[in-house]
Each structure stands twice: as structure tokens, then as C-alpha cells.
Amino acid sequence: MPLSSKDVENIAHLARLRFAENEVPAFTDNLSRIIDFVNQLEAAPVGDAPPMAHPLDQPQRLRKDVVTEKDQRAEFQKNAAAIEAGLYLVPRVIE
């Protein structure tokens, strides 16, 4: 089932990506081919195989509740494009 350009638009919005109008056909085509390809799974005889989320068959290790981190704000914020008063700046958030 080929994807429509509308589908691609919706997925792009969820993923917060934007495609120029002239890119949409090629992306739609590529994505349709990928989805067609993975559609092979449809016929796989999985029976009652439990889903495998992870290759490791071991439980989560629990960390001790200890504060180990120091303030490194200055260091971390060197990588940020817009900061003020220690805050990361973004276009106004409207709730």
C-alpha cells in the first residue's frame, strides 16, 4: 500500500521534520518502498512468540540513591545556541 503525500506530511509533523514541496514526491516514494519491503513481516509465522525488546535476558540493575553530579551548567551551556540567566531560550511557549 503506497503512502500518500498527506501520510508523509502527517508523519513528518510527528517527527518535527519539514520537507520542501519538491522533496515530497521522492520521500514519499522512498518511504513507500521501505514500508513495502518491511511488509514481508506480515506473513511471518510468529505464533505465540513473545516480543523481544532486547537481546539481554537480565533484569534492570538498581542504582543507589546518591547524588554524584556537580553543577556543570557553564560547561553544558557552551553547546547551547541561546541562553540567558542560566536558562535555555526558545520561541515563546504558549499553553
Partner: peptide, 8 residues
């Protein structure tokens, strides 16, 4: 912040 929001 000049029309921006700050994130903490």
C-alpha cells in the same frame, strides 16, 4: 525574555 521563553 525578549518574547522568548526560558527553560529550566
Amino acid at each position: 525574555f525578549h518574547g522568548l521563553s526560558g527553560i529550566d
